[in-house]
Design a protein around this nucleic acid. Structure first.
Lengths: 225, 225
DNA sequence: GAGTGGTCTAGACCACGGC
DNA sequence: CCGTGGTCTAGACCACTCC
């Protein structure tokens, strides 16, 4: 966190306030004009620093209200990933491979510590799989993957998956819709298998289903290029 | 990438230049004073925008020289992860679990497309495992994990692993050094197994070894808390 | 209307890099 | 010495939110 530029003073200043718990998430920071006095810096420098922190996901400036301490690190990750894709420094296929890794790991963690109550959640999802049109199935798909990740109880995995999902949202939607239209039965089956393996605590079957699920997605991505 | 704030004009401006290939990585952008004229914005706004892009990893301002288009997205990721840890919105254990996921996936990709030449690289590493002190073994460890990831040919996995590694660098170093001192033989064996499984193309054995490797790290992290 | 962020003005000086 | 980024000055006006 070190640096020679002036705005690091602002960052340190805010970090101190966080450390000493003078502000917590959702709390309001001193106004720009107030920080200006307290740190004897120009408003320019204050604002440059705030911009940095804003894009780090630590604060949010609300017009007419003030600057607030928030936790939007997820959005930060998202913008970095978007930039990577934009600059072609990464591809959808690479993103998909990372998603596969995260989902498999989340599944592994989930299987170890899932409660009966959580299992019932998956039973509900399982029931919803057979019915509905493409739109409905996209929803069920999201619900399943989301629940899987969140019950893994690893906030980092959750945040990563969330960020990555949004990055290639349109791409994914296209693929999923294509899938449920062309191959609805297979799609239903693979998701049912994932659900059931969670409920039954069958690690091998679950991982295999996830593999198959992503193999298919990767194949589709490949065919889109 | 939309937004109402003025500095989005600057971002769009630069994005356009990138799209039209007027500048490439390493290239120099117009000076702040020049952009000021071209976009009819104040220098303040230009600079706020540049700060945003700098912390996104897209540009770098060099004092006395100018602003350059770069690719430092890795550093951006790193700072977000550091912030997460700093704010206790994530833990070393969570980071370790993500690393495990990435490494397992990289291994999977690697196994599919490794060349004979690349295998020889792992043979070299394998030879170096038995010799040396703690310091040496830390180096070999790095070399192995690094080579594994980079041969997976997924730049995203590589970048993620790189960012995550630096975030918990001191923590990891401690653990590894502890390992090679307390349990050198086990440490050597597990790394040998990873190498051999790559050379032999034995997916099951490799994944098992990686699991074991990270199980041990997680256990150590747990005992540090 | 008071307070706040968003932006601008029209300059200025310093520190750094390259010629 | 010149161009560049880093920072500052001492204001200003607008748009927004809350009371």
């Amino acid at each position: 966190m070190a640096g020679d530029k002036v705005y690091y003073q602002v960052i340190t200043y805010i970090e101190e306030m966080v450390k000493q718990k003078k502000i917590t998430f959702g709390g309001k920071l001193p106004s720009e004009r107030e920080m200006m006095e307290q740190l004897s810096l120009s408003r320019n420098s204050i604002r440059e620093a705030l911009r940095t922190l804003e894009h780090l996901g630590l604060i949010e400036s609300r017009h007419g209200k003030g600057t607030y301490l928030v936790n939007h690190m997820g959005a930060s990750l998202r913008s970095v990933f978007s930039m990577l894709i934009f600059l072609k420094e990464s591809t959808y296929l690479e993103v998909s491979q990372l998603r596969r890794a995260i989902e498999a790991e989340a599944f592994d963690l989930l299987i170890l510590k899932i409660t009966e109550e959580e299992k019932r959640e998956f039973e509900k999802i399982l029931e919803q799989i057979p019915f509905g049109d493409a739109e409905h199935m996209v929803k069920v798909d999201r619900a399943l993957h989301n629940t899987l990740i969140s019950y893994s109880e690893n906030r980092l995995l959750f945040m990563m998956m969330d960020a990555l999902s949004e990055v290639c949202d349109t791409c994914t939607r296209l693929i999923i819709k294509g899938a449920v239209e062309k191959n609805a039965q297979w799609w239903q089956e693979i998701h049912s298998r994932i659900c059931r393996s969670i409920i039954d605590g069958d690690r091998q079957a679950g991982l295999a289903a996830i593999e198959e699920h992503y193999d298919w997605i990767d194949k589709e991505i490949y065919s889109l290029l």
